[in-house]
Write a protein that binds this DNA or RNA. Sequence first.
DNA 1: GTGGTCTAGACCACT
DNA 2: GTGGTCTAGACCACG
Lengths: 121, 121, 121, 121
Amino acid sequence: MNIAISNTSDKPIYQQLYEQISAQILKGELASGYPLPPIRQAATELRVSIITVKKAWEELERLGLIYTVTGKGCFVNDLSPSEMLQKRKEIIQKQMVMDASYYKSFGLTLEEVFELLKEIY
Amino acid sequence: MNIAISNTSDKPIYQQLYEQISAQILKGELASGYPLPPIRQAATELRVSIITVKKAWEELERLGLIYTVTGKGCFVNDLSPSEMLQKRKEIIQKQMVMDASYYKSFGLTLEEVFELLKEIY
Amino acid sequence: MNIAISNTSDKPIYQQLYEQISAQILKGELASGYPLPPIRQAATELRVSIITVKKAWEELERLGLIYTVTGKGCFVNDLSPSEMLQKRKEIIQKQMVMDASYYKSFGLTLEEVFELLKEIY
Amino acid sequence: MNIAISNTSDKPIYQQLYEQISAQILKGELASGYPLPPIRQAATELRVSIITVKKAWEELERLGLIYTVTGKGCFVNDLSPSEMLQKRKEIIQKQMVMDASYYKSFGLTLEEVFELLKEIY
DNA sequence: GTGGTCTAGACCACT
DNA sequence: GTGGTCTAGACCACG
């Protein structure tokens, strides 16, 4: 678990948390069954509130990436490689649709988007 | 001036406003010297608060796309075609850098981004 | 808005809240566009924490029964009668599946369930 | 003894235990005097904590379905067929009353409950 | 004024 | 020990 929190970011802390963890799971860096740190421990280490960690963990569960066992802890779900790819695609494209509508509002064609993206990626 | 406001969007209204207007300016749809509608009129027509319109106009001025003449109103800046292209690129890429960092966090290569973007654009 | 909170119930408060409100919406008692009370007001009146009300409102939004406008408030969604029936069925059957599995574990047939249910309904 | 435990279920494990065992007793699958497995053995086989099994056994005793002989173990109570039917009805209807109140809160008539239940049972 | 987020504690149920 | 819930405040962005 390697998480970086930015208090100055415009993104809420809980969103930073679940975005980073979901990315790690979907990159295969956290194997199935891997136990997430206890919310209290995570809260202490990251210097955020328990409730903030809880919110992030809840979102991960809603995304189907982890499961919770009361009294035991939270664990990375067992997903087949194809399920992982599918979930990754879903999560990324959900964001991408919004990004694309922004580009479109400036009249950019797909080719122009590619050109600009190439310069900075 | 053709603006569409969505109250249910997650984007703040003032942001929807300045994004759409800046896009129209940079697409050349609003010529230099074109007078933006008075704040009160715009607020009435769009059924939003005066404060909201003011915030959007201020952002446009900050972006260097319009200028304000006290007591007269706000007008589209006089930009050379090359300046327009430059500003458009700046504004779009500023957003694009953030989008890209999100994609990168999932380990996507530039090619994968292209693939996914193609599907939805 | 007529809500009854029980602190002695085994159900969490936020669940009592969204169950009662969703029931009222799906019974048509709260018309489309009806503004829910502001979370702070609701929290004060019901003598619960803001965060508890927020959680209930969030669940209602997730169920597609209300929508939130930041800075304005939360409002009952505009659903066609058929959509309402569909949502009602979804929500109720989700619970019903769990109830049924309990009855089945005692070896009850559908007819026996009907018999017992008739006595108490 | 045929017990299936789900760690991911929302039901507590001890509840899953006593529900399944009480169902088996009331279906007559476990005859009177039948000795329940020792707590430690059950805990090992089911891979749950001793405390969890103990809690389940205690609940069964509270329901009047088993009795404990210190130093010997726990045994299924001797119930006449009519007592069994009575207890089964009690236990099921106790749950059913809660289920029914949920359905009622959505304004469902008994007939509507039957319709929906038929689809999933 | 509204909702969105966050904190630093607390108590409870489950294992 | 774990997660589940809750409180009573607080600050911020939006309108």
